[in-house]
Write a protein that binds this DNA or RNA. Structure first.
Lengths: 245, 245
DNA sequence: CCCGGTATCCCCGAAAACCGGGAGGGCGGC
DNA sequence: GCCGCCCTCCCGGTTTTCGGGGATACCGGG
């Protein structure tokens, strides 16, 4: 309830109001970093959730991050064990790194991730998970040697993070695939029916095609996505947003 | 940037700070309603997303909502066409009802929903969609005859909505199903492998079972969920949160 | 003008999944 | 102690899917 808190909250709201007008991702980055730096953070990053097997690097939307940490993180494969990432799957509320509950299963690797982060100057951090209609999508990470925030400031950063994500996604949108759908319309059609448990024959009837055509679409979809059977293809197509529901 | 805005923002943050200490859902309801009433809203509701075929009624966590509207809404089946609900699937940012883009497909029914809402005293509204690691979960709706909010107030309500959701979910948690899983552990195991494209034989090897056993689990899962084949079962099990990823 | 992608159809043999039975043992509740 | 559920295995027959070959046609870009 201090004046400092109020000032920070006001600045956060002003920043959010201003984000809409920015079109250069670097402007977004600078604007946000300038503000969070004021509460003790030395680093920050806005990142998408990488696909399994993918690295974090190409999924960073914006970042001011310790030299070398990222490549090390990817090389060692920390991502799979990072307790902060794992916690993002479980919570929508922002959290400080040291508040993440321990998972006995991953304890040794998890501890290693956090220790190595500390060695890179990130002894403490704060993370705002981002979720949308399709689930966990990414997050905003803030880190530094030591951090202290009042609950009110944490809330302001929560809100800031949500809008920062939108702004980062919007301003870096040009990097995304152009119209780039992997599957054709028909392939998506048959997969949608498959997801409803339809056989090829039913799908053929419903779409007015021959069973062979439906089979061809399923086969092509399999080979495009690189999946093993229809079930696998449907799941992956869903993850890739090629089909919905 | 007005004083009124600042006051509202401060009150919102105070309210959020106070939510943690409430344990009675009615306290949460009253606390929030008192605040939103001050910016012209006569009604508000916090609701889970109903499963397909389910009604909204039992999914309301908290609500101050026009008499009769809810039962009418359920009876007529407005839910399927409600453009506000549909928009929640597409956006994470809060929005005013009149900002929802038109969907040509649903135009007649969608218009009807909005007109009937207006007749029930809800000529305008504001909605905060709630998404978690599993996607769109529900939302906070605010409504009244007419509303006007500055961007800053909208942001404050955004944040308020997120924490109100947590508080509502927490305080009404006792209503939820006790441990109620539909599938057995083994059934979930085999479905998880199926989702990765494994054949029954591979799954059997991986789990150290016979193919017949795996088949039995798949069969039982099918009959429990009421699905038509493995693909369908996996998709439904995913929707029912029986399996993840 | 050719190439790549899409949309549509065809065939066939092999592999996998599905169906509807059984069956035995364990474990927890009423 | 019985009933219900879970875990595990088995069988025989039917349906569906998979894999790998085809084919024809359209359409748009380099």
């Amino acid at each position: 309830m201090s004046d400092a808190d109020d000032a920070f909250i006001r600045q956060s709201f002003d920043l959010i109001d201003g984000l809409d007008s920015l079109s250069d991702p670097l402007d977004v980055q600078k604007t946000i970093f300038d503000l969070v730096a004021r509460c003790g953070f030395s680093y920050f990053a806005i990142t998408r959730l990488p696909q399994p097997g993918e690295r974090i690097g190409p999924n960073l939307l914006l970042s001011v991050w310790p030299e070398g940490w990222l490549s090390h993180y990817d090389r060692v494969g920390h991502y799979r064990h990072d307790p902060v990432v794992r916690h993002c799957f479980r919570t929508t509320e922002p959290f400080a790194w040291n508040e993440v509950p321990h998972e006995p299963d991953h304890a040794p690797q998890a501890r290693r991730v956090m220790e190595e982060a500390r060695e890179h100057g990130m002894g403490a951090g704060y993370c705002v998970p981002i979720h949308d209609a399709h689930g966990f999508q990414g997050g905003i990470s803030l880190a530094g040697e030591r951090i202290e925030m009042t609950p009110r400031v944490r809330r302001a950063i929560h809100l800031l993070g949500l809008y920062a994500w939108s702004a980062a996604a919007r301003t870096t949108a040009r990097h995304r695939k152009p119209g780039g759908r992997l599957l054709s319309a028909r392939e998506r059609d048959v997969l949608s029916f498959a997801a409803q448990g339809r056989t090829r024959e039913e799908t053929a009837d419903l779409l007015g095609l021959s069973v062979e055509t439906v089979s061809t679409y399923l086969r092509n979809a399999r080979s495009k996505i690189g999946t093993r059977n229809t079930t696998h293809t449907v799941i992956e197509a869903l993850r890739l947003r090629e089909i919905v529901l």
